[in-house]
């Protein structure tokens, strides 16, 4: 028990950046309640991309400098047409630098923990070999995970909330606890 609290304290010292992207945040898909799990300002810095860059102009240098300050990142977004939100795509395109893979260049992502939290209004049963879409859910985010892996980040398994439109308060609470548990224990 003592061991666990020690670890926890250690993580709280190093801040986590939450990169949140939701183009239709007004739409009730339980994200409004979910993001309250980042309430603890000691641990999390919350970056709402659509609030930060409403006109899709991303100052890449500033963003790169920002990345260097954190050792854990959480990408939190809903799926938009089976893919990541367009502004997050643009953000990745503009900020992530292919040269980071080179030895002599500082890589702000190298060895850092990256968690991915996805919500989708699709049901879990729609995915998989026999599902409606006949595709594995994880494969939808292959390119996103790959990009992070190529940049030498430590990418953890994707955490998904299916059927996000119809989550009860209790369920949302469970998801929050589960996910916080994962990021604080691993």
């Amino acid at each position: 028990m003592k061991f666990v609290t020690l670890r926890k304290a250690e993580f709280i010292l190093a801040k986590t950046l939450v990169i949140f992207a939701h183009p239709f945040f007004e739409f009730p898909d339980s994200n409004q309640e979910l993001i309250s799990m980042y309430e603890d300002k000691e641990q999390f810095d919350f970056m709402d991309l659509y609030e930060f860059y409403p006109n899709f102009h991303i100052p890449a240098f500033k963003e790169r400098k920002r990345l260097a300050k954190y050792d854990t990142f959480i990408f939190h977004f809903p799926l938009i047409w089976f893919d990541i939100p367009p502004l997050l795509r643009l953000w990745l395109d503009e900020v992530m630098d292919a040269r980071w893979t080179k030895k002599e260049i500082d890589n702000p992502l190298e060895g850092k923990r990256v968690f991915i939290f996805v919500t989708t209004i699709s049901k879990r049963r729609s995915f998989g070999q026999y599902g409606k879409y006949k595709i594995e859910f994880e494969s939808l985010l292959t390119s996103f995970s790959l990009l992070l892996k190529v940049l030498e980040a430590k990418v953890y398994p994707i955490y998904t909330v299916f059927d996000s439109e119809h989550q009860t308060k209790e369920n949302i609470e469970i998801h929050k606890q589960n996910f916080l548990g994962i990021i604080n224990q691993t």
Partner: peptide, 8 residues
């Protein structure tokens, strides 16, 4: 400056 014109 906020250069961001590299192409990935």
């Amino acid at each position: 400056n906020e250069d961001n014109s590299q192409l990935n």
